[in-house]
């Protein structure tokens, strides 16, 4: 499967990346080579094989549904690039 620059731009938008022109060009070629390589998987017939998402067979891990202390505002906000009292601050979302 080949990938063109238009698709690279679409994927970048989905991934919330703003790529420079030289990056777009570089990634188009490199992703094309990698995607050509992963095509080898199509040599295998996987009909009737169930997918593995996790190597260790496990049931859901449940815990009691009760309130426990969390890390609190001060520590949660300590690494915020911008904050206002107990909130993260961002540019206006609604005009």
């Amino acid at each position: 499967m080949s990938i063109n620059q238009h698709e690279i731009e679409h994927v970048a938008k989905l991934a919330r990346l703003s790529l420079r022109d030289d990056e777009k060009q570089l990634f188009t070629g490199q992703m094309e080579a990698i995607l050509a390589y992963v095509e080898t998987l199509n040599e295998l017939n996987t009909d009737g094989i169930s997918p593995t998402s996790h190597a260790v067979p496990m049931e859901n891990a449940f815990r009691p549904d009760c309130v426990t202390p969390s890390i609190g505002h001060d520590r949660a906000l300590a690494n915020a690039p911008d904050k206002n009292e107990t909130y993260f601050r961002v540019p206006p979302v609604i005009e």
């Binding site: 990938i3 698709e7 990346l17 490199q30 996987t46 094989i49």
Partner: peptide, 30 residues
Amino acid sequence: VKRRIMLGTYALSSGYYDAYYIKAQKVRTL
């Protein structure tokens, strides 16, 4: 990091999910 995010986003994106991601998970079983 950008290259891998791009590749992973592509493999999960609409139209390619079964061909790439699910296929890879099946081969993982093998």
